[in-house]
Nucleic acid binder design. Structure first.
Lengths: 216, 216
DNA sequence: ATATGTGAATTGATTCACAGCG
DNA sequence: CGCTGTGAATCAATTCACATAT
């Protein structure tokens, strides 16, 4: 069975949720698909279609209640619980992520920092202490870790991903500029700034006439 | 007008280019669409269709010459020149990017690091010295900066983007977890690890199992 | 009056089958 | 005979028009 909600829609739901959180903080109580679309960088049509794939949350004539819609999107996206996350690869990027102070605000909990280099064991990384990668399986079991940041160098990415999969991690955020292969049931999201630079190079290269590209 | 390439294809061309660079380094001289697809995480059909949108680079019966295809993809993607990049926002992430040692290897050159905080002016950031954001327009003009990493906090992202656009930067890699609005002709690529976490949460949320029908 | 929810139309992307070249 | 290049078919996503509910 294909996913209940198309991937493209899931990506936009995340954006809508952000806009709604900002609106709620600003004290706004209701919003129309028109304005939500404007703020999320898409169309009112798209907003209504996306929201309709997961329920009927609006009121005809007066739009959506910000608080209700925010709560419903959290539920749909699986964000009503705290997810525990590990970092694998404590180079510059892994360190920067460990230092990131706002995970709790997004309902994620950093629960482990791992590296294969024994020299890094015991070092501080934000609120954590770096452990050897061989200790990952026990941490996954004991701390309920279900996702990981993969922040190792590209040549090490596949091996590290294999370790994560074997340990039972089913969601990988891959920062390495390479494709990793995982079995069915394990999900990979790429975070690829070098690729982003190269796609920008193409866009600026004069191959396309002026195109609108609203950020997602 | 040169043939236009769909955005989805551009993203995969970047991946193919990476695979080809690795293969060339490993001394491999020829590759089939079958194996390139396997390594890039897609199908042989897709590889051939993608490559056909920008030329005829293969040889029937024996596949693609690695060196030739790599060179052609570089040309198509606009990677035959060095692109100069600035960093705007010298928090943890901006600092980590400034320290990244491999930009030259990808034919990008870091040419400026900027922040609005006067206290950060003069600090070292990798090979650069942090300047005040008000000096950005001169740097864009004098150093040929055409892209920027936007690594400011989310509430500051739109204002900073406006400064970049006014200074003439036409490509923005947006690391802030918010949508930014830019005029036609300016391109934005999002690098969104928090969004990635949330999309993983949805994927792991158990929506693959049978779900209860909504009553109509 | 106003703005949602949704079938229909359109556009875009992927998959396929096979013709055609080496 | 092997493997690319490509039209045709399938599948997905977006855009639109409007009926419908408040």
């Amino acid at each position: 069975m294909p996913p209940l909600i198309p991937p493209a829609t899931v990506g936009r739901l995340v954006t809508y949720l952000r806009v709604l959180t900002d609106l709620a903080a600003a004290g706004v109580e209701r919003i129309s698909s028109d304005e939500l679309g404007e703020r999320a960088g898409t169309s009112a049509f798209q907003v209504r279609k996306d929201l309709a794939t997961c329920g009927r949350f609006g009121t005809r004539g007066s739009g959506y209640a910000v608080a209700t819609l925010e709560r419903e999107l959290r539920r749909v996206l699986g964000l009503t619980r705290v997810w525990s996350v590990a970092i694998v690869g404590m180079g510059r990027l892994g360190q920067a992520l460990a230092d990131y102070p706002n995970f709790a605000e997004y309902d994620f909990a950093l629960r482990g920092a791992f590296d294969v280099d024994p020299a890094k064991g015991g070092l501080a990384a934000g609120p954590l202490v770096v452990r050897h990668l061989s200790e990952l399986p026990a941490a996954v079991r004991d701390d309920g870790i279900s996702m990981a940041f993969l922040t190792v160098p590209a040549p090490a990415a596949q091996v590290a991903a294999d370790v994560l999969v074997a340990a039972g991690v089913r969601g990988i955020l891959n920062f390495a500029p390479t494709v990793i292969h995982v079995p069915d049931g394990v999900h990979v999201e790429g975070v690829d700034f070098l690729g982003g630079l190269q796609r920008l190079a193409f866009a600026l290269g004069g191959h396309t006439a002026a195109t609108i590209d609203l950020g997602v």
